[in-house]
Amino acid sequence: MNKAPTVELKLPIIKDMELIATQTSEVVSKHMSLTDDQSGEISMALIEACINAFEHSETKNEVYIHFIISDNELTIKVIDKGKGFDASKIKIPEIENKINTNERKRGWGLMLIKELMDSVDFESDHTGTTLTMVKKKDSNE
């Protein structure tokens, strides 16, 4: 069995480096003949995944991104070696709870990723987190 073509990036924790990931995802999306809407959704999800890895993992090391290309879908893994997190403790944000309240305005990343991609999965422990997200080629987003 042939190994799926994979593009790998290693991003240092530097401001706005997530844009390097989106530039790569645009090239990969074009290669896979994904629509402009799908490409935009992947870029947006990737930005949020990178920001989570940069900020919340508290890692001082690089963040790794793997784009795994297949005929029917694009799988993206965002890997950090940070402190990990408990997904069950993350509240689903609602704007009504954030306006005119003391609730912090941030905390949208995971929700956006889930809404924009076809599937999202995590493996996380104290040694790091791997977020795996998939965009199907035939998704009617």
Binding site: E18, S43, M44, I47, E48, I51, K105, R106, L112
Partner: peptide
């Protein structure tokens, strides 16, 4: 292109 941090500031 936007990120959720920039958008959150607009909520403020």
């Amino acid at each position: 292109i936007v990120n959720s941090i920039g958008a959150s500031i607009l909520i403020e």
